[in-house]
Amino acid sequence: MDFSILVTDFWSLTIDGIVVGAIVALVSLGYTLVYGVLRLINFAHSEIFMIGTMTCYLVIQQFGFTGYEEPLPLWKFASLFLLFGLTAAMVSGVAAVILEIVAYRRLRVLGASRLSSLISAIGASFFLVEVFQKLSGAKNLDFPRMISKEPIFTFSSAYISADKILVIVGAGIVFYILNRIINHTKLGLGIRAVSQDEKTSILMGVNVNRIISYTFLLGGALAGVGSAFYMVFYETTKANVGFLIGISAFTAAVLGGIGNVRGALVGSFALGLFQQYTSAVLGYNWKDVVTFVILVFVLLVKPTGLFGESLQKARV
């Protein structure tokens, strides 16, 4: 174990941690929003993210890139990015809505046990992964390099390249928009009302089913945007890409206090940084073990996370 790397590469690790954290945050928000309204972990959310990455890949394929071209000029890249980013957001959002209707709605109406919903979600998740496994021939699908990864400027040990700036700035804009939606629109009000108290919301005339659909749409769209950043940054995807990022995002949501939007953001960045620092020291192989250990630790020591209220106990 070599701790000196933490000092020499501090800024490089930190910048990467923020980039990873931003991507994780976009996925993590989906878990938290859905948990807020349904008190249910959307197990198949990681597959919604996967569908986003696949969408990006498919859109870009239409343009016939082989991956060996020169990086694109900025305006061309920007318009392409908007195109596949928005398409991914749309597709993921719609997929999430369909998922809710197929896998959860009937069980919710029946008042079936949470175990049933969870198993149904796991089934949906397996189905999606396997379908894309078959469609992709179980191969890694590589994304062409569209934006230069050469550093634009260096900062101490950190090379700041255009894709990292894109992720950080882009995610910042998305978070701002999300904040506006949640705090300043009727939809946001509805989501907050249902999260607070479903029964009362119904009495107040909130259409709960609609709010739930919109919440899935919103969470799915955020994951879709995250998948576009992911593709630009990592440049590859595969059918089970969602699994590990899903675990990270879920851990981040728990770390921040599941059900709490601000918590998901803080948790994601904290986790992203921590993952970078620890895997620099322990080796990249252990990154996922570290994530899991954090998850267990948080759940055991402070299951409510940093900002969460206690959701462990039901009222008797």
Binding site: G123, S125, E130
Partner: peptide
């Protein structure tokens, strides 16, 4: 795929 579907 079949099992996933079956579970749902």
């Amino acid at each position: 795929i079949f099992f996933g579907l079956l579970m749902v």
